[in-house]
Design a protein around this nucleic acid. Structure first.
Lengths: 349, 349
DNA sequence: TGCGGGTATGAAATGGGTTTCAAACATGCG
DNA sequence: CGCATGTTTGAAACCCATTTCATACCCGCA
């Protein structure tokens, strides 16, 4: 049953040379005579030999592996971020190992152990767990593994934590949304979604409140824990039932497209028209955004680009090479119809 | 800059014992005196020492790593499958390495090399690449790496390929949809989506055609390449423009929820009411399905369960243990409103 | 006292490569 | 021809843990 794995020694014996020479042929080292090279190459091909990465890693002390910690991959935002990172890692010869850390679960000891034993060259972190205060210890804990290991965070920058950071400017996304609504004439604008623990949610709220102040608008404001469609649905109910029609907001900024989707559904059920009675704006530009009714105006955060650049920068830090890596694009507003402006929405009529 | 990594030898020296003893303490081996054990443990804790998995792997010839090849993870179906697999792998002490193989790209040599070098204990494959005929060589190619390596496929079973298979009964999902529509009185039923290369798409079509025959219905039938919302939108246009109103189908089976979403949008634009004028049914029960208008009747394939069971079975094959692993649930129809039956749809009014 | 049996510990081999260093060989030049 | 230089090649050390085998030690019993 057990097929013996062929080693460099087998190849060497078969080709009548030393393992050293085989190694040199594989590494395409210069000082091997054409005749020997050809002979060895033939045996290698014949046996489909590939050098064991495990042995290489042991020697080189580099695993060419990066760890990625995300809340999961079922949320399209993180899925895209991961795929972006994956593509870049592939291109640079690195492998990614994904660790999922569900939002509300604490960091289990067994997972920590898993991470510790896998000797990854560097780590990329994103999502609420990284940012949430109680679990902020995640980074110090990772630091204890190997002090010199570079850690990169994709989130609003953390104070007094020694990490590379890819700035995902979440407050700018909400500022753009807000200004867009303002320019359309809206003055009573509400904010929906988020949870207190997540710093990136907090970041958006702060951006919202700050920008509202700048625009000298009253803070018609409703904060509802959660990032799901259901949260959006419930959020709309609570928001609108707590306000008289006079004070009802004319626009709704949702923390993400899911919340916006739930909101649209609920508004529809309540007979409130979008965008005539209320404008709705989402965030993330998820694939379904063009297909809600009406098509959702939203903000594209380019998660795939963030993932790609994260790997670039991490590898650069690892190799000390002066790579001139690109920066991810800043958030950009995608205008569809849910705010009453029709631009760039695709229809086939 | 370069922090020397602490080895078992450092610990041994510091504790004044041999590496062997340290290893025994870590493995909680019996024959170590209480005094020595305590002494060694103290040094281990002090230095936060964890034995290098790489060295362990080299010796044990098992990497406790499974490779997963999927078309990607941005499609929620695969994202859920991956997370299910991930959870089970975590529980069993295994690590997953994800390789993404975009649907239409050929298997690049460099990716194959990546897979080859990572010595994974087993592999899980799913998605069109595995099934598509021209690339069917994927499995033979993987086999050349190490003949004894177990390979598990999550798809309709492949003939004459020696793999463990988790049967994702795609034809049954479309059969269920079809019978549901039939029972509601529909007779002119169309099928939308899929592409010729993908066997799982073919599987569904075959199921559709076969079941239509059994029910003695005419094959009002439109096949449109693609699995995206846009494909659904275009598909509806082509389907309805090619048929007179007389022969227009009263029901539409979409190959997935995305196609269904695009279809719903397009039908809405064309002023065709759902479900009054036409019933629409999807597949996958994606998170947005309850929030389309009307809420989408669809089929849940339980991808997470498939992923979970896949890891269970693969690990069982690896360890030769007679695990009695569970089977994933078969596909189940989720009835919402897009076919004119209102059941279990959540509203807050 | 001498010997069998059990426990505690360590030396050395192992796994599969890479790298350093040295040796063998060929070549060029005075 | 002899020496310096350059090219091929291989032996041995190394990476870091585990495991086998051997040794040292202690105890009890004849």
């Amino acid at each position: 049953m057990e097929t013996e794995r062929i080693t460099i020694y087998d190849i060497a014996r078969e080709a009548g040379v030393s393992p050293t020479t085989v190694s040199r042929v594989i590494a395409e080292h210069a000082n091997v005579s054409a005749h020997t090279r050809k002979k060895v190459r033939k045996v290698i091909d014949q046996y489909h030999f590939t050098p064991s990465r495990i042995a290489q890693e042991l020697l080189s002390k580099r695993s060419l592996t990066l760890g990625v910690i995300l809340p999961g991959v079922t949320h399209p935002y993180y899925a895209e971020m991961f795929e972006g990172a994956y593509q870049e890692a592939c291109r640079l010869g690195y492998t990614l190992i994904l660790f999922c850390l569900p939002q509300n679960e604490p960091l289990s000891a067994s997972l920590m152990d898993q991470i510790a034993r896998r000797r990854v060259d560097g780590m990329i972190l994103s999502g609420g767990i990284v940012e949430a205060t109680p679990e902020r210890e995640l980074i110090p804990m990772l630091r204890t593994l190997r002090r010199s290991m570079p850690i990169l965070t994709i989130c609003p920058p953390l104070p007094d934590v020694d990490c590379i950071n890819i700035y995902s400017d979440l407050s700018s996304s909400v500022r753009q949304s807000l200004r867009h609504l303002y320019n359309l004439g809206h003055r009573r604008i509400a904010f929906l979604g988020g949870s207190y623990e997540s710093r990136s949610a907090g970041e958006r709220e702060l951006g919202f409140l700050d920008e509202m102040k700048k625009l000298d608008l009253p803070a018609v404001y409703r904060h509802e824990a959660g990032h799901t469609a259901e949260a959006g649905q419930l959020g709309v109910i609570k928001l609108l039932s707590s306000l008289t029609d006079q004070r009802r907001p004319t626009a709704l900024i949702c923390i993400n497209d899911l919340v916006a989707l739930g909101s649209l559904t609920q508004l529809h059920h309540m007979g409130i028209r979008v965008p005539e009675d209320i404008a709705v704006i989402g965030c993330d530009n998820q694939f379904f955004a063009p297909y809600t009714s009406p098509p959702l105006t939203t903000v594209d955060l380019h998660p795939a680009e963030h993932g790609r650049v994260a790997v670039q920068q991490l590898v650069a830090a690892l190799t000390d090479e002066a790579m001139n890596f690109s920066q991810p694009r800043p958030a950009v507003l995608i205008i569809r119809e849910s705010c009453g402006v029709s631009l760039g929405a695709r229809r086939f009529e």
